[in-house]
Design a protein around this nucleic acid. Structure first.
Length: 202
DNA sequence: GAACCGATTGCCT
DNA sequence: GGCAATCGGTTCG
């Protein structure tokens, strides 16, 4: 365990784009099957409120998207493409929609356990293949054992906490357009750490 | 109740 | 680089 500062709900209760930027370099801590997992956030995307046509919240609250309209510091985990779960953190004050999608992380602790959750044989796991574990939004949820049961839950340990990192200040931030969407493709709402090999698509 | 589609991944060429 | 897999959410009739 670490003595680094766990980010409070007030960190998330702010402008979504700002939170997406500041989350780069922070760490996610989680306990899965009695093992601790620790990762560094290297890629995020901002999904805004009703003015963002690429966001689930763009047409007002629905049974799925209502979490985005709720209080900040809550997990928004949803199912997509018949196979995958994607992890988001809800932002902005209650009543205003917003969330930050976690698109890629760098494994720090519990790497063997994450590889196992991804179905990768750790004995065959070469340094070259390490990036395959968490270099994508659905890969990282598989590697961290995240599924729909966490949707709507408050951030917090042991299930999932976000903390500051002593190496955060070292990273250089790149700002670009979001991936996998068909609307508002021109908006610069994707952020990642420059030259980090765990980023989903450089 | 039916049709359409998606904030992806992994396998195939 | 292209594309199938796969199914819940959303929309429309």
């Amino acid at each position: 365990m670490s003595s680094k500062k766990i980010l409070p709900a007030s960190f998330f209760e702010r402008n979504t784009t700002q939170v997406a930027k500041e989350l780069i370099g922070c760490e996610i801590l989680r306990k899965v099957n009695k093992y601790w997992i620790r990762v560094r956030i290297v890629e995020t995307e901002a999904y805004l409120g009703e003015g963002d046509p690429a966001s689930h919240s763009s047409r007002g609250p629905t049974p799925r998207s209502k979490v985005m309209f709720g209080p900040a510091g809550v997990l928004y985990v949803y199912f997509i493409y018949g196979n995958y779960f994607l992890l988001n953190f809800v932002t902005e004050k209650k009543g205003k929609a917003g969330a930050v999608l976690i698109r890629a992380v760098e494994p720090l602790d519990g790497i063997a356990h994450m590889a196992e959750l991804r179905g990768i044989n750790t004995k065959l796991l070469s340094q070259c293949d390490l990036y395959k574990i968490t270099s994508g939004p659905a890969k990282l949820t598989m590697a961290m054992g995240i599924n729909g049961t966490l949707n709507g839950k408050k951030l917090g340990l042991p299930h999932l906490g976000v903390q500051e990192s002593s190496t955060k200040s070292v990273c250089e931030l790149i700002e670009t357009t979001r991936i996998g969407i068909s609307a508002a493709q021109e908006l610069p709402l994707r952020f990642y750490e420059k030259e980090n090999p765990f980023v989903s698509k450089l």
